[in-house]
Nucleic acid binder design. Structure first.
Lengths: 256, 256
DNA sequence: TTTGAAACCTTCAAATATTTTCGAACAAAG
DNA sequence: CTTTGTTCGAAAATATTTGAAGGTTTCAAA
């Protein structure tokens, strides 16, 4: 017998897969009453995980999107989790840090839950959500306009805001990293904000999986000289390792 | 005998491996009481390492996390949903609004999903999460320090930020509303921010359930004269209705 | 447009299972 | 010796599920 949460999870996935489900069908499927199924569907509708319709339910387009993103996500998830752990170990109690938005940094945020006396500024909505659970952590968000694609906030005010604070460390998740051109991204406001982040912090920590090496995007953020620590996975090619070390970058390679 | 930490580690791994675990099963497995297992599961749930389900736990992922979100006080939920719907009907396409943080306004946000060409500024994390799904809606967040108790952001910058924009309507969720003293709240930064919100908007819409009438808190926000529309439930006492109408407030009472 | 039957939905109270709370017992650490 | 953290059992509180009763909605025939 499945628990309520499991059953509801199944219902959501089934709805996504089939395109629509009926109350009767679900009741037979899970061998429970239709009243309970209706309760489930109404609750799931309230949470926005599906849309209730007479006699059953249909998927919410929001979820289909998220789930498809997630498949891409799961491929690298293990790596990101490991990187997240490794970065969290570089953060000490009492630190004041800036945490960039992104899926790798989200894993970092998750690993920060439980740390004490931390101050974190972020522009990522998902990161704020993670840290909202972290009792020992003061969370600041930059504000600005929400870019839904990346679940992060941008705007001129975000950069101004940073000037009022002094941060220890900045943790930057990157799209591309290139030996000659350094770190870059394809979305200009992000680049601007990331530069402001880096100007503000004593120590720059870059996180990325090894697949991002050799890629360069239009908008440059910082050169390799400015990077203090880089955390990535051990699939990184030797030639990169040598170059990075010649730039005096402290390299952390997690096992995959 | 395993230590607490070791046991909890085991529990997490077991949950990941099996897909779900039951309290009873774990208690037998580790040969300790169900009370202790429940303690473990609740703590692990708090840390986000698994998701508690009735009778046991399931591995933590996006879906299960969303499903585990505590159901709100079901008694008031219905009222809040109705109010949410009613308020959403007062919002037109093309509007630029400020949406206060709070659980009633969260329901408003939920009902705004699907509207087109909307611009919403909010200081609520949960509201930003709701609106992140709303494709036709530009979302701005004020930023500032996260107050975890109310899942909302405060800070002097938030108020400054508002000055750069012009909003049509402001939707205010209130703690207390009193005939003589108007609308008030017990948390000072919230009061400051709410005042700034009201200064900025053409139309002030107040939402609250009828239980908040007659209550007054330390920090005043606005007087009744300044309120344009009030949405509440039909349990509101007659004497209030008369007074509100004498203040030229457009009253919307939802059925409960 | 009205009407009536079928399908569907919500509400309710009861039965069951699970959880929370609390004081107390115990052990390890300081 | 006190403090801190863990564990426990039992009672009280809460959540889940359900069938039955009474409303709604739908749809097609009149």
């Amino acid at each position: 017998m499945l628990s309520t949460i499991e059953r509801r999870q199944e219902i959501v996935l089934l709805t996504e897969k089939k395109g629509n489900v009926s109350v009767k069908e679900l009741a037979e499927n899970f061998n429970i009453s239709t009243v309970t199924i209706r309760n489930d569907l109404n609750e799931l509708n309230r949470l926005g995980l599906l849309v209730r319709s007479r006699g059953g339910a249909v998927p919410s387009n929001r979820l289909t999107k998220e789930l498809s993103i997630k498949e891409k996500h799961t491929k690298n998830l293990k790596v990101k989790q490991k990187i997240g752990e490794a970065v969290a170990n570089l953060i000490d109690e009492g630190d004041a840090i800036i945490l960039d938005s992104g899926s790798t940094t989200e894993e970092v945020a998750h690993c920060l839950i439980g740390k004490k006396q931390l101050t974190v500024m972020t522009n990522g909505l998902n990161i704020a959500n993670q840290l909202a659970q972290a009792e020992g952590c003061d969370v600041f968000i930059t504000g600005g306009k929400l870019r839904k694609k990346s679940m992060s906030f941008y705007g001129a005010q975000a950069e101004e805001r940073l000037e009022y604070y002094n941060f220890n460390k900045v943790i930057l998740g990157v799209d591309g990293i290139d030996i000659n051109r350094g770190i870059s991204t394809h979305y200009e406001p992000e680049a601007n904000f990331n530069r402001a982040m880096c100007d503000n912090a004593e120590q720059i920590i870059v996180v990325t999986d090894s697949s991002k090496f050799g890629k360069r995007s239009l908008h440059a953020i910082v050169t390799l000289d400015q990077v203090d620590i880089l955390v990535t996975d051990n699939q990184l090619a030797k030639e990169y390792i040598d170059v990075l070390e010649s730039h005096n970058i402290e390299l952390h390679l997690v096992d995959v």
